[in-house]
């Protein structure tokens, strides 16, 4: 390498002589975070779009209260004339749908609360209040962890504990392989759960930093960026909850 030249001096003064730089008035971190969220939106669009297409393409006789998913006999009208047939499990229909909407609605409320506490955390440090930042971050971590705990509990009861009727699953347990509905449910909520877990991990890092007093009124972009991510994860959940549980 033939650069014997000394390390150059700070070129910042150059800007006074030449034309001004063309960059927009945001930080690189924020641009990158928005781009990252855009890629995440496309990823979840892939999953949600798949769900919509698969559900629309599911035949009217895929689910029934008397037979396992996709194992409904061709002559069902003769064999079991009173069987109800669906193209997709309906909400609150215990014959085909094992999901507890009440529990998850409460969980959704908790996640929305965590977004509120995240807003309070950012607002606190924007005013320079380090103690409130720590407190609200702690609350956010708590809400996020609670959400994850409920999701783990939900998965556990679905996959291992409860015995469900035939219309839900041929095996009695609700696992990803028992039906298309189960595949979609576990993939979508599972990837969202992984994002929440990542968010909680980052929030814990923020919390530890804030306990050390790292963030100040002028120096807290990590709080803002991770806050953006957290709100995104919350927003995705509202869509997923609507699409997977409610409709």
């Amino acid at each position: 390498m033939a650069h014997a030249a000394a390390i150059p001096v700070n070129p910042g003064t150059l800007a006074t002589s030449g034309p001004k730089v063309q960059g927009p008035p945001v930080t690189a971190g924020k641009v990158a975070m928005w781009l990252f969220l855009a890629t995440e939106i496309m990823f979840f669009t892939g999953l949600i779009g798949t769900y919509i297409v698969l559900r629309a393409g599911s035949p009217a006789t895929a689910y029934s209260d008397k037979f396992s998913p996709n194992q409904i006999p061709k002559d069902v009208a003769v064999v079991a004339p009173d069987a109800k047939l669906y193209n997709w499990p309906l909400p609150y229909d215990a014959h085909t749908n094992p999901l507890s909407i009440d529990l998850t609605a409460f969980n959704t409320f908790i996640l929305i609360c965590s977004s509120v506490s995240m807003v309070r955390a950012l607002a606190a440090i924007q005013k320079g209040d380090k103690k409130k930042l720590t407190a609200w971050l702690f609350v956010t971590v708590l809400f996020g962890s609670f959400f994850l705990g409920v999701q783990v509990y939900e998965y556990r009861s679905l996959m291992f504990e409860h015995i469900y009727p035939k219309g839900v699953s041929a095996t009695g347990h609700f696992t990803p392989d028992v039906s298309l509905f189960a595949s979609c449910f576990f993939t979508m909520t599972g990837f969202h759960g992984a994002h929440v877990a990542g968010g909680v991990f980052m929030l814990i890092c923020l919390l530890l930093q804030s306990l050390r007093g790292t963030y100040t009124q002028t120096h807290h972009s990590s709080v803002e960026l991770i806050g953006l991510y957290w709100h995104f994860v919350d927003l995705v959940w509202i869509i997923l909850f609507t699409v997977v549980y409610l409709i």
């Binding site: 910042g12 930080t27 690189a28």
Partner: peptide, 27 residues
């Protein structure tokens, strides 16, 4: 909020904030 911590690096544009006072510590 032009901190190093979040930007990962100090290369955030030094000139963006004002061409007339060369505070180039970011560069």
């Amino acid at each position: 909020s032009n901190e190093h911590a979040a930007n990962g690096h100090g290369h955030a544009d030094p000139h963006a904030h004002g061409a007339d006072h060369g505070h180039g510590h970011d560069d």
